[in-house]
Design a protein around this nucleic acid. Structure first.
Lengths: 234, 234
DNA sequence: ACCTGAACACCGTTCAAGT
DNA sequence: ACCTGAACACCGTTCAAGT
């Protein structure tokens, strides 16, 4: 809508920081974060690598911008949520927000890793957490409890957890974990038992093969939220 | 103790996979993971970069080996723990194990990031979790609950959480968060309030500046463990 | 003001050659 | 069997030069 209509369409739209960041997200969506290099990003924009440096400071700045852009997207989606937040209602409200953030993360499966690797604080991420603390305050949290709550939630507040056991690919339903682990199986009897049991429950429509990530995420989230609600003094 | 005593000390001890991995850990301890390159690792071992490839497959294999070596260290430390595990005692036993794992992580502050970035499963990490599931079984967990428990714990089972808000450096006790955030402060009133409150509680001996990581970790851990104990059907 | 080509200092890794 | 030098294909980034 800001483009000049009387320009021929072949005319190169000028680079902007925003255009660079959007291209970076598109590139990571299409080919994974490891494909997100300055050179490939430039190629995707039809430009030389060095031109990018007029709009972003360096690669770190690109990652920072990408994180912030996604956090803005989350804030916009979350702002559309309404409903009560006072007293015990904080919990359902917080749950809805966090699951909304998760929806955006699921559209960019590489994003959790980038979020987790950042050490600086993206403004939009700060705003997101400010609103979350606001919800907890509505629910009767002291600042101290809200503080502990953020730490207890960790990355879960943004809708993701780091999986310690994610082989990446899907798990075929007819495989025996004992076979999968091979001769190693006898050394880890509890895990073999657990996985055999888990496979019996596998929902073929679940997002990942090993277990339904969404169900597990909500289980862990509710465990923490329930625990927090129990600690509120109202 | 395995070196031949009659060899002159200048004689180069031959490279082994283990020596390479130990050097990698030492290098990361001293200069951070970003310093862990094949070339610098080789230099640290007094060897050319290409010699490493006779003992490790590639850099990914180095990271894999490093993770496994640390997990072995954790397993050794955890194996020395004894005490009851049956019934409700599982919780204290699990807590002790996890805090022991955390001690080793704290000695290698870069390790959590490497653990989290791995997609394959290190054998020693698998064994660690097998024993943890064993504990839960002693405590009366179904396989299904143990499975959910591992997901709910996430990286916490290994003694660390990904901090979403870690500026890295220490936070001076006399700074006002409102100043820190600058003109941004008025946009995030809840966070400013929370941080002002948090600073009043700062223990100068705490590990990190922003908050006492250990206290926060234990709070989140207990929240999850308490929640799980409530769900056990015994 | 914005973009570029060439170059620099680094990566991981391959290969053919040394002992 | 173990180690090496030279080289390749990539990085991020700087700089001086173009329009």
């Amino acid at each position: 809508m800001s483009a000049q209509a009387d320009q021929p369409p072949e005319a190169r739209t000028p680079l902007t920081r925003e255009r660079v960041l959007r291209a970076a997200i598109a590139l990571a969506d299409a080919h994974g974060v490891e494909a997100l290099t300055m050179r490939r990003l430039a190629t995707a924009l039809g430009v030389e690598a060095m031109s990018l440096y007029h709009h972003v400071a360096n690669k770190d700045d690109v990652l920072e911008g990408v994180v912030d852009l996604l956090a803005v997207e989350i804030n916009d989606a979350v702002a559309a949520i309404d409903g009560p937040t006072a007293g015990a209602a904080w919990q359902a409200a917080a749950r809805k927000r966090i699951l909304t953030a998760r929806e955006i993360m699921l559209r960019h499966p590489w994003a959790p890793r980038v979020f987790a690797s950042r050490t600086s604080m993206s403004p939009a991420t700060i705003v997101y957490h400010d609103r979350l603390v606001g919800l907890m305050r509505d629910g009767g949290f002291s600042y101290d409890l809200a503080h502990r709550a953020l730490h207890a939630l960790g990355s879960r507040s943004l809708g993701f957890t780091q999986e310690m056991f994610d082989p990446g690919g899907a798990m075929p339903a007819d495989v025996d974990p004992a076979d999968l682990l091979g001769s190693f199986a006898e050394q880890v009897p509890h895990l073999v038992g657990m996985l055999q049991d888990a496979i019996a429950h596998v929902d073929p429509d679940s997002r990942l093969g090993w277990c339904d990530d969404q169900v597990e995420f909500e289980f862990g989230l509710d465990l923490v939220l329930d625990g927090l609600e129990r600690l509120v003094v109202r």
